[in-house]
Write a protein that binds this DNA or RNA. Structure first.
Lengths: 359, 359
DNA sequence: CTGAAAGCGCTTACAG
DNA sequence: CTGAAAGCGCTTACAG
């Protein structure tokens, strides 16, 4: 067992051919004679030869690696994106290089540069970079890029380079679901201003409310996606003059905070006031009452992003056109009042009872 | 904007020096004259030059990348490991290559080979590879490796090459916590047999019970880490002859299933029977009653693994010796009976009231 | 302090 | 069907 790995020259020597021929066999060029091939494969086995990827990358100018740049590495959204990206990457025999930006535009820039020579393309989610800067960066990286939940000036960029959750549709559906149940004073706890998820969800809410009750019927309580903000919003609602009969929080964690505040003030959910969320985090199923919410298939989003990216890398223009964007779906549980408490809240009913409403 | 990126030759040409000198500046060899340096840096800027990592890797035989091989990519454990690994990798300016094995030994082997030439070392978590095979693989990969929560024959391998959660200690502490509260018929819902997490947690439980009540006082209900198994165990307990006054489920999700079954049978938790878990998943805080459990700082585990790995890569023998392994800690909430229901269950008390008991 | 040149381990026209 | 050789873009002794 030598200290250093075998190289293609070792394989050539052992099998008595040139490195060119070894290379052909390794790359599946089927011009090589069967006998030669067998000899070579045997040598490969014997030497435990694995091609050096940097050398191959130099020669081919390809890395068979895609980069994933995320704003941060916390929580379920991140892991689901990665999981989906991995599915597509693995199917195409691509490796995955991971990076994140701490939500900082500077770091995002730096990460993109650092990745540039190590990948054949990248999936970037960088909500904090202003679109112009991002565009420049992408341009000068000269790499195929697919944007994930990230704004991009649409100046001639093919839509296939951007995938995103349809927050507007999800929020609208959910609001309409509340309206359909007879609620008519529906408040919205918003996410942080300037955040595109926030904006989309609020827009969907407003569209549904305005369509049903006319312009001016919206009730917005400012939040920021934190549990504390949801709690505060709950207290404000309890204390406020205009009592909503239902609350749509822009994410689940705020909904949970809100429910907590309502409970503490002696309100029953959903009997006195319905509360729904967005995201379908794992905890949504476990709280009491189980939370009605909107689920987005994040892994699928990641998978599609990766598939499109790889198609671009391969110059395979429309290989990924077959994949529809995943649509948000409503997950009906107890907190909206559509199900009785005993349903939906507990383990066994989980599958049979939860109602999913496809868009 | 040419189609191809600038190379070191371009920089050399523009700044009127040799590529060797450019290389020196790029690598911080401070032998270069200030004026030369400035010229070069300016050219770098102007050309938006970024060194080609494959070329550099060829020349230096280093990739400044570490690989992370995980059994799968689901859930919080995974994302926390990655997050921790990333912290250490980033601090040392290493990139992260991610792979997983679908829990399949064959795939794990393949993944290790595929990674071999792309990384300077790897963190591998491959609980399904039998130790002998893993050892061979690691040996022939000739790469620094740190094992994460993975068995390894201890034949002369320095302990720094393996990091793992101390399940035994965590389970023991938790069981002792129940004992200290006066419970004396404490059952354990085990994880899947053969799983090392399972085994460790069960051992810790047994050690504590045997120490307190003498050998033969343990009560084990077989589980498999699933919510359904916890539910089934709860039903079995309800139906059984020997009623425990407390249940320690080997993970939170089984504890949740168990509580559900108890509730459905009309038992109050913790008044009639206490239930505790292990892992401190996010949902543990949100269920009713909020779950007493054991928290393991997974991200810290990942960080230490990466730090040790990088120290090995750098030949920096004891650089990581300063880092103690993270110890499990008990998170006391409502389900063990130590806190009143109003405490611990709700948002505001989250921080002030939850009792953490350091090991 | 700087440069010319070899070498890292592959792939790929170009010949034969 | 196979081989000799150039080239991918760096780094690093070795000279000077």
């Amino acid at each position: 067992m030598t200290k250093r790995h075998a190289t293609i020259r070792d394989v050539a020597r052992v099998s008595g051919v040139s490195v060119a021929t070894v290379s052909r066999v390794l790359n599946g060029l089927d011009v090589v004679a069967e006998a030669t091939r067998d000899k070579i494969l045997q040598a490969v086995e014997q030497l435990d030869y694995v091609p050096h990827s940097a050398a191959r990358a130099m020669a081919t100018r390809q890395t068979t690696t895609i980069g994933v740049l995320l704003p941060d590495l916390h929580g379920e959204f991140f892991s689901e994106v990665i999981r989906g990206v991995d599915i597509a990457a693995r199917a195409a025999h691509y490796h995955l290089l991971l990076s994140h930006s701490h939500g900082d535009p500077e770091e995002a820039m730096a990460a993109i540069r650092a990745m540039r020579s190590r990948v054949d393309g990248m999936i970037v989610m960088a909500p904090t970079i202003e679109p112009g800067g991002l565009m420049t960066l992408v341009r000068q990286s000269k790499l195929p890029v697919v944007l994930l939940n990230t704004d991009f000036p649409s100046s001639g960029v093919p839509s296939s380079t951007s995938v995103m959750v349809d927050n507007v549709a999800g929020a609208r559906m959910l609001t309409e679901h509340l309206i359909a149940q007879g609620y008519n004073r529906i408040a919205h706890i918003s996410g942080p201003p300037g955040n595109r998820e926030s904006q989309g969800r609020q827009s969907g809410y407003e569209a549904a409310i305005n369509a049903a009750f006319g312009v001016g019927s919206t009730m917005i309580v400012a939040g920021d996606f934190s549990e504390a903000a949801g709690f505060a919003a709950g207290r404000a609602i309890v204390a406020g003059a205009l009592r909503p009969d239902a609350v749509f929080a822009a994410n689940d964690i705020m909904a949970i905070g809100c429910i907590d505040a309502l409970h503490q003030a002696g309100f029953a959910v959903p009997a006195d006031i319905a509360v729904v969320g967005f995201d379908d985090i794992p905890a949504a199923r476990f709280i009491t009452p189980a939370l009605t919410t909107v689920r987005v298939h994040i892994a699928e989003l990641g998978r599609i992003a990766a598939k499109r990216l790889i198609a671009q890398v391969l110059g395979d223009g429309n290989a990924a056109d077959g994949d529809a964007m995943p649509q948000p779906e409503i997950v009906v549980r107890v907190s909206c009042g559509a199900l009785s408490t005993r349903q939906g809240a507990t383990y066994q009913q989980k599958n049979p009872v939860e109602g999913r409403v496809e868009l």
